[in-house]
C-alpha cells in the first residue's frame, strides 16, 4: 500500500507539470486548430534558461529567495519571446497554406531548437542547484518533499490564474471569440494577430514554469528532455479533450497518475517481463486508446474531425 500512495504522490506532482505544458498545446489548438509541435522544446529551453540563470545568480552570491523569482521572470520572458518568434516565423506565414506545411515547419523549429540547445549547453546532463533544505514529510506512508509540494501548489495556482484570465478578462474574451470564429471575431474588432501572439506567449510562459519545475523535480536538465515531455503533455491534452482548458488540467494529472502507477506495477502485471524502464510507453498507449475509444477526449465536445 505504501508503494501505491507513493506512486499517487509522484504521479500528481509529475501530472501537474504535464498539465501546465498541456495547457500550452490546448490553447494554441483551440485558437488555431494547430498542434504546436515545438512546444516541448520551449519547455526544454525554459529548463535550460532557468538553470543557467539560477546558477549564475547564486554564483554572484544572491540569496536563493531572490534568485528564484528573478530567474523565473527571466526564463518566462525568454520563453515568451521564443514563443512569439516561433509563431511569427513558422506559423503565421503559413496560416492559409495546406495543413501539412505548418506541421513540417514545426518539426523544423524543434530540430533547430534542440541542436541550438545542444551547442549552447552541451550534451551532458545539468544538475539543478540545491537551494532550500529539501525536507521530506511522510504522508500516509508516502514520502513527499518540499520541492514537490511547492511544484504542486504553484502549478494549481497558475492554472487557477489562467482560468481567471480566460474567463474574466477582456483578453480572455477576445481569445474565446477568436477560438469560436476567427472571421466573426475580426469583424467585431478583435485584433486576431495580437490575440494569437498573446496566446503563444501565454502558453510559452507556462512552459517556462513547467521547465523550471521539471528540472527542479528531477534535479536534472538535458537538451533532449523536451521531446518526450512534449509528447506526453500532448497526450494529456488529447486525453482531456484538446481545445479544452479544464480538460488539459485533468488530462495532465490523470496521465501523471497512470504513468506513475503503471511504472510502479508493470513489473507485477507482466510477471517481471517488463520493468519501469517502459514508463515512457504508457503515455503512447493512452494516446492510442483515447484516439480509438473517445477521440474527443474526456471533456471535449468539439469533433476531432472538423470539416
Amino acid at each position: 500500500m505504501e508503494i501505491f500512495f507513493q506512486q499517487i504522490v509522484n504521479g500528481l506532482v509529475q501530472g501537474s507539470v504535464y498539465a501546465l505544458v498541456a495547457l500550452g498545446y490546448t490553447m494554441v489548438y483551440g485558437i488555431l486548430g494547430l498542434i504546436n509541435f515545438a512546444h516541448g522544446e520551449v519547455v526544454m529551453i525554459g529548463a535550460m534558461l532557468a538553470l543557467s540563470s539560477l546558477n549564475a545568480m547564486l554564483g554572484w552570491g544572491m540569496p536563493p529567495l531572490l534568485a528564484l523569482p528573478l530567474s523565473l521572470a527571466f526564463t518566462m520572458l525568454g520563453c515568451m519571446a521564443l514563443g512569439y518568434g516561433i509563431e511569427r516565423i513558422a506559423y503565421r506565414p503559413l496560416r492559409h497554406a495546406p495543413r501539412l506545411a505548418p506541421l513540417i515547419t514545426a518539426i523544423g523549429v524543434s530540430i533547430v531548437l534542440q541542436n541550438l540547445a545542444m551547442m549552447v549547453w552541451g550534451r551532458q546532463y545539468h544538475a539543478f542547484p540545491q537551494m532550500i533544505a529539501n525536507n521530506t514529510h511522510t504522508l500516509a506512508g508516502a514520502i513527499i518533499n518540499d520541492v514537490q509540494i511547492i511544484i504542486f501548489i504553484t502549478a494549481l495556482a497558475i492554472m487557477a490564474g489562467l482560468m481567471v484570465v480566460v474567463h474574466r478578462t477582456r483578453l480572455g474574451r477576445a481569445m474565446r471569440a477568436v477560438a469560436e470564429d476567427q472571421h466573426a471575431a475580426q469583424l467585431m474588432g478583435v485584433d486576431i494577430n495580437r490575440v494569437i501572439s498573446i496566446t503563444f506567449m501565454l502558453g510559452s510562459a507556462l512552459a517556462a514554469v513547467a521547465g523550471l519545475m521539471v528540472s527542479a523535480n528531477y534535479g536534472l536538465a538535458h537538451y533532449y528532455m523536451g521531446f518526450l515531455l512534449g509528447l506526453k503533455a500532448f497526450t494529456a491534452a488529447v486525453l482531456g479533450g484538446i481545445g479544452n482548458l479544464r480538460g488539459a488540467m485533468l488530462g495532465g494529472l490523470l496521465l501523471g497518475l497512470i504513468e506513475s502507477l503503471g511504472a510502479g506495477y508493470i513489473g507485477d502485471l507482466t510477471g517481471g517481463f517488463m520493468g519501469s524502464n517502459y514508463q515512457d510507453v504508457f503515455a503512447f498507449f493512452v494516446l492510442i486508446a483515447v484516439l480509438v475509444l473517445r477521440p474527443s477526449g474526456l471533456l471535449g465536445e468539439r469533433l476531432a474531425e472538423r470539416a
Binding site: I35, F37, L231, A283, L287, L291, P295
Partner: peptide
Amino acid sequence: LRGDYLAIVTLGFGE
C-alpha cells in the same frame, strides 16, 4: 482522425 494526430502518433510510435 485529422492529419496532425497521425503525425504525433507516428512520432510516438517511432520512439
